[in-house]
Amino acid sequence: MIFIDFVALSFALFAIGIAGVAASRHFLIMMLSVEVGIIASTLLATVFFYFTGSGNIITLLLSMWTVASMEVLALIAFYRYLAAQEVSLDVTKLSKLKN
């Protein structure tokens, strides 16, 4: 269990999150993939502060998670709006929002 293992794992998780956003067309699945990217970034931050032994991890990560949860709440509100407007959740058809 060394530094580079955790960094590689964080990078792999972030790449999986990006791949999920790129590969799926369903809105909810894209939100879940964004979550994977967020946990990858928090893991990387924790690893960095753990191995360098500096800084206050808790304050940084709580602020990161606050921003992330606000983002998710905004996305859920947008999702509910889409569902209420009976717009297809296939993101390639989101141009219907112009109406």
Binding site: D5, I16, G17, G20, S33, V36
Partner: peptide, 16 residues
């Protein structure tokens, strides 16, 4: 670490 990391990557791929 190896087991948990492998399981985490697999479950992340399974999402989509």
């Amino acid at each position: 670490f190896a087991a948990v990391a492998a399981l985490e990557v697999i479950s992340a791929v399974l999402i989509f």
